Simulated assay, not measured.
Amino acid sequence: MAPFPLRPVRRAVPGDGDALGELDRATWSTLHAVQPRPQPPYEPFFDERHRPEDVLVAETDSPGEGPRLAGYIRIVPPTPLACNAHVRQIQGLAVAERARGQGVARALLRASFAEARRQGANRVTLRVLGHNAPARALYAAEGFVVEGVLSGEFFLHGRYVDDVLMGRPLAP
């Protein structure tokens, strides 16, 4: 199936919550999740800590259907401290299976860099599981470097998994 055109990345709105929750559940994987697979009744995607204004959404144009959710990225201040206000942290990135390999994750990352700069940040960080080679390769290709490793931080499915801390500066 040919890829559908990617629309400009936009900020999420409260009405996106159900579709984002469905995407989160559909993309759950042991490759990146430390929490168990979500079970009904599902928690809402947006709550006091996870707000629409912290999420950027990618959509594709599907003929006859209009825009379809292709992925999202959540980018937030890592702490409420004033001395840390120059940093934004990626705390979630998901791409629908049908949209993988079409540059959606890369578009979301780049849009998050622009949004972080708009908010006055000069640095972006993230955490990724050590065994998630595809995500680590993508982040490295987008300028992230490993800044620390918490060895054996998680015990998942019978083995210890590293938590890899990555970061990158934002050019003005």
Rank of each mutant, 00 (worst) to 15 (best):
L93V: 13
L20F: 05
E153Q: 15
L81D: 05
V87D: 08
R25E: 00
L108R: 06
R68A: 06
Q35T: 15
V34N: 07
A107L: 11
V128Q: 04
L69E: 04
A58M: 02
L109E: 02
V146S: 14
G71L: 05
P3N: 15
R37K: 13
T60F: 08
V128S: 02
W28Q: 03
L150C: 11
A135G: 07
G21Y: 00
E97F: 05
G167R: 15
L81E: 08
P44L: 01
V124M: 12
C83I: 07
P8G: 03
R118I: 00
S151K: 14
A96I: 12
G15S: 13
T60E: 11
P14E: 03
I75G: 10
T125C: 06
R159M: 02
P40K: 13
A111G: 09
R51I: 05
Q89F: 05
P80M: 10
R10F: 01
A19N: 04
G152N: 11
L20H: 01
R100H: 12
E43I: 05
G158A: 11
V124S: 08
R88L: 00
M1T: 15
V57K: 03
T125N: 06
R159W: 02
A140K: 15
D18M: 08
V145L: 09
G158L: 07
L170M: 00
G103C: 07
G143K: 05
A58W: 08
A2M: 09
R168I: 02
V164R: 05
R117V: 10
P36V: 12
I90H: 04
L156W: 10
L23C: 05
Q102L: 14
A137E: 14
F155A: 11
D24A: 05
L69N: 08
L126E: 12
L6E: 00
